[in-house]
């Protein structure tokens, strides 16, 4: 795509800007900021990726992944701010899911060990893990808040902290993973996934594009379930002290 053609895509930014102005929606400022940020961020990433691919050095790959984990943690921690030590819990979750998925992909030689595969796949895994983490933390903190009576009831009857929080934990894990599972049921019928569409537009064989998309879908299934479970099991013990007393969420 030439720069002239690329600049023509700004028409798609002008349409919402004009509509916002006409209907007084007040979205102009945010639309402009979003446009400028996406241009700068994506171009920067494009040049960085180009360099990393050329150098093909493990240190740069690791640095890129660490950067992604750092950004994902920073973004997700706000949603779990009421849970003690949420930052390191998120870091552990993202590192674990990255190591798990890459070990399977590279260990079974499903994808070649090159930055062209490792970095984009890591981006998808960590990005989805972050979204799942946010969904989980949102639901979990709400469940814990709303069902304090049930938690204390089970403790008073001689239940352990794990038993006292079990329902809230399971409900939150299910609620956060259901969107991923449900969206996979209709994929290809309602929408073509972004990565597959991109490959087809770029001229790839559609069947091969589908094969890669399936790989990503299955990968994201693991990412969703493992993220919620791991984050849940890392989070709930901090809601109790050594005397098995239920502690309030940090306000």
């Amino acid at each position: 795509m030439s720069y002239l053609t690329l600049s023509l895509t700004l028409i798609f930014v002008l349409i919402p800007l004009i509509l916002s102005r006409t209907l007084k929606l007040g979205l102009e400022k945010d639309t402009l900021i979003a446009t400028v940020r996406s241009i700068i961020q994506l171009l920067a990433v494009g040049y960085v990726l180009q360099y990393v691919f050329e150098v093909d050095n493990i240190i740069f790959i690791v640095l890129m992944i660490l950067l992604m984990i750092g950004a994902a943690t920073q973004n997700a921690r706000k949603k779990g701010a009421s849970i003690q030590g949420i930052t390191w819990k998120l870091v552990v979750t993202f590192v674990f899911i990255e190591v798990l998925t890459q070990s399977i992909l590279l260990g079974f030689q499903i994808v070649p060990p090159t930055p062209q595969y490792i970095i984009p796949i890591s981006g998808m895994v960590i990005g989805n893990s972050m979204v799942l983490g946010i969904l989980f933390l949102n639901r979990f903190t709400a469940e814990v808040e709303n069902r304090q009576d049930e938690t204390e009831l089970i403790l008073t009857l001689g239940g352990t902290p794990k038993q006292a929080i079990h329902t809230q934990l399971i409900t939150s894990i299910k609620a956060s993973t259901i969107p991923t599972i449900e969206s996979q049921k209709t994929i290809g019928l309602v929408q073509l996934p972004g990565m597959m569409s991109g490959q087809i537009i770029a001229g790839a064989d559609p069947v091969q594009a589908v094969q890669f998309q399936l790989l990503i879908l299955f990968l994201l299934l693991t990412t969703a379930v493992v993220t919620s479970i791991l984050l849940g099991y890392l989070s709930y013990p901090t809601l109790f002290n050594k005397r098995m007393q239920f502690l309030k969420l940090k306000s």
């Binding site: 403790l155 009857l157 001689g158 239940g159």
Partner: peptide
């Protein structure tokens, strides 16, 4: 704590 709560019911 578990034993205590079984013996001191509420």
């Amino acid at each position: 704590p578990v034993e205590l709560r079984r013996n001191v019911g509420i």
